[in-house]
Amino acid sequence: MPILENVNPEIHQKASAREITHAEEDDDVVDEIDGREIFDLIRNINDPEHPLSLEELNVVENSRVHVDNAQNRVMVDFTPTIPHCSMATLIGLSIRVKLLRSLPNRFKVDVRITPGTHASEEAVNKQLADKERVAAALENSHLLEVVNQCLSSNKTSSE
């Protein structure tokens, strides 16, 4: 097992499942994509180091997800558990890839570090915003495997 950077992180309460409304079950009503829907897409991403979800580690929070349906924009801020977390880029990349796969392509997605929570905030943000670099990263089969690991739903993937 690799050595963990943060052996003993804080854990947080998970949000309960979204309740299904009557409108959502009505065939004729149009449901807009909202912040909670996007949060639901990313909250169960696995942390690369711990057998915990990003939500449990408070890396992603509902309040830091914003959607602008009219402008087709999605903004997600995430908060690394420690300011020197070397996994920040990988986490950001996982969020990006997850949204790339799960949202209609009309959306422009921004994934950034919550301002003031990481030592190399700017560098990481730049990396995540650079389309070519993200695409190049995903060409790297090892990196892609690590990202997919984070996105896979079975928790015993280490077996």
């Binding site: 959502e24 009503v29 799960s102 997919n148 690991q149």
Partner: peptide, 24 residues
Amino acid sequence: LDDKKRLVRKEAAQARGEWYLLET
């Protein structure tokens, strides 16, 4: 993924995610 119903989008995202993961 751009269905008008949220419940459909949820399943679409889920299914598509799983198909992406086939390679791993």
